[in-house]
Design a protein around this nucleic acid. Structure first.
Lengths: 334, 334
DNA sequence: CTGAAAGCGCTTACAG
DNA sequence: CTGAAAGCGCTTACAG
């Protein structure tokens, strides 16, 4: 029923192979022949059958994206940008939600999902490096995020420690000395909370300001986590002149709580976050934060994966890319 | 290189067709034969080649989802749920971002994207009903949202007017009489703002409260829109004892502005929204709003589309489904 | 209940 | 530069 390459070949008076050559931008083809084929394609409204092409070539021109859940804003924004960059290179992105469950992550790595894609952008949340290495198969995989830092894998991530140090330095430069840190879980340097806390401590050391553990509060990386964390500091009577939320949600929650309790921002307390989500710009006061280069993460991970798929990136070792960051100074901490 | 059905057939000592029968749950097959095939599959680690299956059967087991941008939280949450429901029926979801541009919407409707999917979940934002009807092709399409209400199409949407009336009635029942409405654009009944404003007016009429146009403020459906809209009411000296934001972002922005200006919530002003986004629960005070049944929208649209694809839904007319809604009474308007 | 054959629409060596 | 042929791995009539 649909128009096939055979129909085009017949209409153009050439062989199948010639049509294929035109379609695949084969170099050595006479302009006249090419034009005949192009005309036939236009006239018949021919569209290549992607499934047939995939079956024969073994390529689907799809990238798999494995993440926990699209309803988490960070992943949704990342997915959106990845799709845009992939599309610019002629690829589509097929998303698989793992719910951060090991079983789901594993089946995304080796199940039918894998067949449908030429390569994987993988956010490992539940699986460890060894398991992934054992099941990653032969198609390229690029890791996203900081949970896996293993030389065997390609990895694209952000400068957590450096960015946290930069924003802490900014608060220090504006004269703040007692900077509360909300959202730190541990000093385990392999995950984001640990890396960001380390950056904070590094900046203090550089400025010659002593680290005070009383200013470090553990909390959920959510708006209400930040609100109750800053609330507990206030209730305890701990003194502070600035708050660094380890992500924007925490910082926004803290800001809200401070405002409700009658504190002036940034007069009494300066507030800074991390992530530069859309909301940060629209908050009142607008939130000073650090943009961890999501755009760059998206661009470079797509480029790396496609280069692997197409054989343009030949290095046999895992490549580690760290996107740059940018300080966004706004009203909450000028 | 990969294990094929032929390998399985050989290992099990049966023909290709018999393997295919087992794979496709054909009824009339001897248990012994079936077991032999199953054993061979397990032993060889056979996995069906989905591309070959698609080429032959003409089905991809993928649903296309066309929306403006995944970075918009409402769409991201919807996409997440759609994927979950589709997955339960053995389908995947392939997302295409249109940017709400007519050209992109059109190419999603008829371009190569269409080939890759068995049916479309389509959020028409830029295209009108006539254009869609002319280009929708032969595969099923289910419309999402209220921009297109045309008997030719299957449509799954929410009860905008009824839900808005319910939340207005709730504010009235708590004794509020001057309820500001933020975000109304027009009374055009075909889009969400118009439908929700109509619901508000309907509830006023039922309660015998006169409608005051001075309480209706137009603004962007965003946090800062709500903040500046309520700000302008305060600046003008317009009196009001409640605010109904036509979506949660507006309501949250208004709430923030009211708090900053020293108003007590809900003492001085009750605030209500629409959408029940995650943030509404975590705001302080938590936001009274209406949940428009996104779960149900996702479930029923996936069911309708798959039933169309599989021929289980035979009605030739467009089916119109309206999901139920649920009032979420919280602190901001008890 | 099962088999042998055709064919979905392409790309890819292989010739020329 | 172009053609004729094979084949990617399935499903689907068609027989029996």
């Amino acid at each position: 029923m649909a128009v096939t390459m055979n129909d085009v070949a017949r209409a153009a008076g050439v062989s199948l192979k010639t049509v294929s050559n035109v379609l695949n931008d084969y170099e050595f083809i006479r302009p006249v022949t090419k034009q005949k084929v192009l005309d036939a394609i236009a006239e018949l409204g021919y569209e290549a059958n992607l499934t047939a092409r995939s079956l024969r070539s073994g390529k689907t021109r799809m990238l798999g994206l494995v993440l926990s859940d699209l309803s988490i804003p960070y992943y949704a924004e990342l997915a959106s940008r990845l799709m845009t960059f992939a599309s610019a290179r002629g690829y589509r992105v097929l998303v698989e939600q793992s719910g951060a469950e090991p079983g789901h992550e594993l089946s995304a790595l080796q199940g039918p999902f894998r067949q449908l894609t030429d390569g994987l952008l993988f956010t490992p949340l539940a699986l460890d490096a060894g398991t992934i290495a054992a099941h990653q198969g032969t198609k390229p995989v690029v890791m996203l995020g900081e949970h896996i830092a293993d030389p065997r894998f390609d990895l694209v991530t952000m400068k957590n420690a450096e960015a946290a140090a930069a924003i802490t330095a900014h608060l220090l430069a504006s004269g703040r000395r007692r900077i509360a840190v909300l959202g730190a879980a541990s000093e385990d340097t392999t995950d984001s909370p640990g890396l960001r806390l380390n950056g904070y401590r590094e900046a203090l050391k550089t400025a010659g300001v002593e680290f005070d553990p009383a200013l470090v509060v553990q909390c959920d990386w959510r708006r209400d986590g930040g609100a109750s964390a800053v609330g507990s500091l206030l209730d305890d009577g701990t003194e502070f002149d600035a708050v660094f939320g380890l992500n924007d949600a925490i910082a926004l929650g803290a800001m809200h709580e401070l405002l409700i309790r009658g504190h002036k921002l940034p007069g009494d307390v300066a507030v800074a976050g991390f992530d530069d989500i859309d909301e940060a710009r629209f908050a009142s006061p607008s939130l000073t934060t650090v943009s961890p280069g999501m755009e760059e993460i998206a661009e470079r991970s797509v480029k790396l994966l496609i280069d692997r798929i197409e054989g343009a990136e030949a290095s046999s070792e895992g490549l580690h890319v760290e996107a740059g960051f940018e300080l966004k100074v706004r009203e909450s901490a000028p």
